[in-house]
Amino acid sequence: MSFWFWHGLRKGIQSTRYPARAENTPGVSPGRPVNTDFSTVEEAQLAAEICPTDAIVAHGKSTYVNPGKCVHCQLCLHSLQSPMNWETGYEWTRLPADGKEALPFPASFAKSMHIMVVDAGDCGACLHEVKQLNNPLYNMHRLGFFLTATPRTADLLLVVGPVSENMRGPLLKTWEAMPTTRKVMAVGGCAIAGGVFGKSFMCACGVSAVLPVDFEVPGNPPPPLAILHGLLVVAGRKSLNSPRPISEGRP
């Protein structure tokens, strides 16, 4: 059995250097559509029409993207004559659209932040991407981010999924059981705006309908590095790229 030890050692360090250095390995992020200026008004209209969730809004020759609504169907990339511009980064964390001024944790949390993950009706993708943060390639422990088993010791509530009706109670219970210094981060398009599930008798259409959300990580699902960026933002170790989301796609 000792060979596991040597096997592990021989593989060397495989973790990403992010956030010290940017991570550019192909495939770490699927990218996302960004605001695009088309040459004609019609092209912009087509782009807005093809989007099944109205995440793209045309305004003259320009289109504006609301990343919270994007479900990553790739229609605007592959099914258009002139596709939308595509961004390949992953630093997508933003503040929620409701205008609440959320501050990151004070400096004492920077090196040790405990995270409670709640699956509130998630499709499995966002949860799986959060799980990937534990594997050696991302290894969030090296940054002082720990998963906790109980909300009593948790600082951050990380919610994935659009909040199904059966999970509304448990989610609220978890939030209530946390220390009042808690912050809430909604991860994924479903947790932000309900995604493809929308608002129904079984779906609350996003976490903000149930809890006050402090930070949002858009994406469907957001890749592990995007979630890691979110955690760094909450811990006050990274700044937000765009302090406010573009509401309804308009600047």
Partner: peptide, 14 residues
Amino acid sequence: RTLVKRPVWAGGIP
């Protein structure tokens, strides 16, 4: 510090 009392945490059951 302020003391906040909450019911026992039982995994989110009612």
